Simulated assay, not measured.
Amino acid sequence: MVTASQEVQALATEAAAQRLKRAATFAASHIDKPLFKKTMRVGSGPAVLVRLDWPGVLRVFEIATGEMLAESLPGQPDRASARFSQLPSNSVHR
């Protein structure tokens, strides 16, 4: 059985979810550049461009070619998206 206070809480949670959905759509329509963009150099390797785009997708690019080297899941910057979670068969070193 659902209590009155549980029902009120459920309604408040749903209202907040709807507000966030509208706010996210509004934000996405007004973001016209990366949220963050900076060159990163690790050790003696080549520098890469690190960019954070809406909705929290972290991308890493090779500067010389513009090739995307990695892409995260939205809101999970340390987890690779599906298209970067497996190495293509032609990239295996022999």
Rank of each mutant, 00 (worst) to 15 (best):
T3N: 02
V50W: 03
I63K: 02
S81A: 07
D78F: 05
G43H: 08
A23D: 14
P55F: 03
R59V: 01
S91W: 05
G75L: 14
L73Y: 00
S89F: 05
A4Q: 08
A4F: 09
L11Q: 04
D78R: 06
K33Y: 00
R19H: 06
T25D: 15
S44N: 12
V8K: 03
P46Y: 14
A27C: 04
I63N: 06
Q86I: 02
G43S: 09
E71P: 08
P55G: 07
G75Q: 11
F36M: 12
T25W: 09
A82N: 06
L52G: 00
N90Q: 14
L69P: 09
A64L: 02
V42W: 02
E67M: 04
A82L: 00
S85G: 00
H30G: 04
S5E: 09
A27Q: 00
V57I: 10
T39Q: 10
G75C: 14
A28H: 00
Q86P: 00
M1D: 05
L58D: 03
G56S: 07
A27M: 07
P34G: 08
A82I: 10
E71V: 01
T65F: 06
G43I: 06
Q76Y: 06
A47M: 11
R51T: 15
V42C: 14
T65D: 01
S29G: 06
E7T: 05
R59F: 02
S85M: 03
L69G: 14
L58T: 03
S85V: 09
E67N: 06
V8N: 02
A70E: 00
K33H: 03
G43T: 07
L49Y: 01
Q9F: 02
T65Q: 01
L49Q: 06
K37H: 09
Q18V: 11
A27E: 12
K33M: 03
L58I: 06
V60Q: 13
R94K: 12
Q86R: 00
G75S: 11
A24D: 15
L73I: 13
A12D: 11
P46R: 14
M40G: 07
A80C: 12
V57S: 03
Q9C: 05
E7D: 04
V42K: 11
L52H: 05
M1R: 04
G75Y: 08
A70W: 07
V50H: 04
L87S: 12
A17V: 12
M1F: 00
L73S: 09
V42D: 12
S44Y: 12
R19E: 13
P55W: 02
A28V: 10
D32H: 12
A47Q: 15
S89C: 01
S89Y: 02
R22N: 15
D32A: 11
V60L: 15
P46T: 14
F84C: 10
R41C: 15
V48C: 09
A12G: 01
L20D: 11
K33Q: 12
V48P: 01
V60F: 08
P46L: 11
E7R: 14
T25G: 13
F36C: 05
Q9D: 08
P88W: 02
K38Q: 12
P77I: 04
L11A: 03
A15I: 03
A12S: 07
L69D: 10
E62R: 04
V50A: 09
A64C: 04
T65R: 04
Q9G: 06
